[in-house]
Design a protein around this nucleic acid. Structure first.
Lengths: 213, 213
DNA sequence: TGCGAACCGTACCGTACGGTACTGATCGGG
DNA sequence: CCCGATCAGTACCGTACGGTACGGTTCGCA
């Protein structure tokens, strides 16, 4: 029973009720930051008892871990089957990827969870940090890697180290926007610049790694 | 008057004693994260009384703000007078800038302060975030802007929007390393890759914005 | 030598949090 | 119709923090 629960928490085997509780917890976190993420507050917001929280998630850290896993499980990245890939469609796919990346990073839940994990990075041995890294970046990184690999196979891209190419793409897209948003810069005002920024970044990336010239 | 005249430490109106206290506070923050940054802990580490802390800095937020200002005042960026600028020296200056930037961002005090400001971004209306942005990034941004402008004046670089070019340079250099370090990735292991990464980033930047071909 | 300001060390207060224990209500199965 | 399990609601406990107050000490200065 307990073992099943623990394993379930790591994956997605959560009761609807528990999912609803995590939803409320995420909402609290987004609205009020880590300070607002108290067990009493969650219990009040979710109309459940503190005792249930501890029974389901063990302790506060377990609850936070469950929040991260829960949120990650909601964002599934679909692999684009790009069989027919020409210069135009590659560019379009890259631009879409860039916009998606910026949108994800600017999402308030993403920002709140990243802030939480960063704030706890010094205390908990970066356990949450690794979790976010694995569940979040890894997913979108795979999507990008697949896209880049497809581009190379189609003779549209040229690079030796895929990781290096992805690093350049990521940096060109995100620059220091993520940090600025994490530090509190209002994300709403920035969003309208995402489209232009994505186009610029992809153009630069193709100038660097594209074979067409 | 003597108190006020006592050399204002690095432009701030701080006594040496107060600077020493802030030094200890920064050390506490670096070692133990925000949780370790308690008024009692600071008083103990700095051999001063809590009453003095409140007299000097008002409250905990004032103390944290003073810590940021104090740390920023210690990092002065020297403008490189690049009168004779050729392709080689521009590249060398850019590589040096890139390495410096990575070293600064990987510094444990910088990481700790950024973590602190990010953790408080939701509670205090990003006051600390703006402070860090203004005192930290602005400085190194100006250095980069001067370098880019000099390169353009010398006919070695070509760009319309300096801010856009700087964004590309920053992104190519930093990529997602800063976030990874903020999330707890051990910075020590990464440092040895800084040199190579700086070279790669500058090469890519020059391929994008350099006039020499 | 005497005075006053600054300051250290500590005791103290109110509060809020994490976590536990208890009570009563709901509900599905025999 | 009753039994056992689950859970909401709440009271409770220990702890730790931010901030304040106070006694004792040092030191500059007249």
């Amino acid at each position: 029973m307990t073992a099943a629960m623990r394993e379930a928490n790591a994956g997605e085997g959560l009761t609807e009720r528990q999912g609803a509780v995590l939803e409320q917890a995420l909402r609290l976190l987004v609205d009020g930051g880590e300070k607002a993420l108290t067990t009493a507050g969650i219990a009040r917001a979710a109309n459940c008892s503190k005792e249930s929280l501890y029974k389901w998630f063990g302790d506060r850290d377990g609850l936070i871990s469950a929040m991260i896993g829960f949120q990650a499980s909601k964002v599934r990245t679909q692999d684009v089957a790009a069989r027919t890939l020409d210069a135009g469609s590659l560019r379009s796919h890259l631009v879409t990827f860039a916009k998606d990346l910026l949108e994800v990073l600017a999402g308030d839940v993403s920002l709140a969870l990243n802030r939480l994990a960063i704030g706890q990075a010094s205390r908990d041995g970066s356990k949450l940090g690794h979790m976010l890294q694995e569940r979040g970046r890894r997913q979108i990184g795979r999507r990008a890697a697949a896209l880049l690999e497809a581009g190379r196979k189609a003779g549209l891209l040229s690079f030796d180290d895929a990781e290096e190419a992805y690093g350049a793409l990521y940096g060109l897209i995100v620059s220091d926007w993520h940090l600025k948003m994490l530090l509190g810069e209002e994300a709403g005002e920035m969003r309208q610049g995402f489209g232009r920024k994505a186009e610029q970044a992809v153009s630069a990336f193709l100038a660097l790694y594209g074979t067409k010239r």
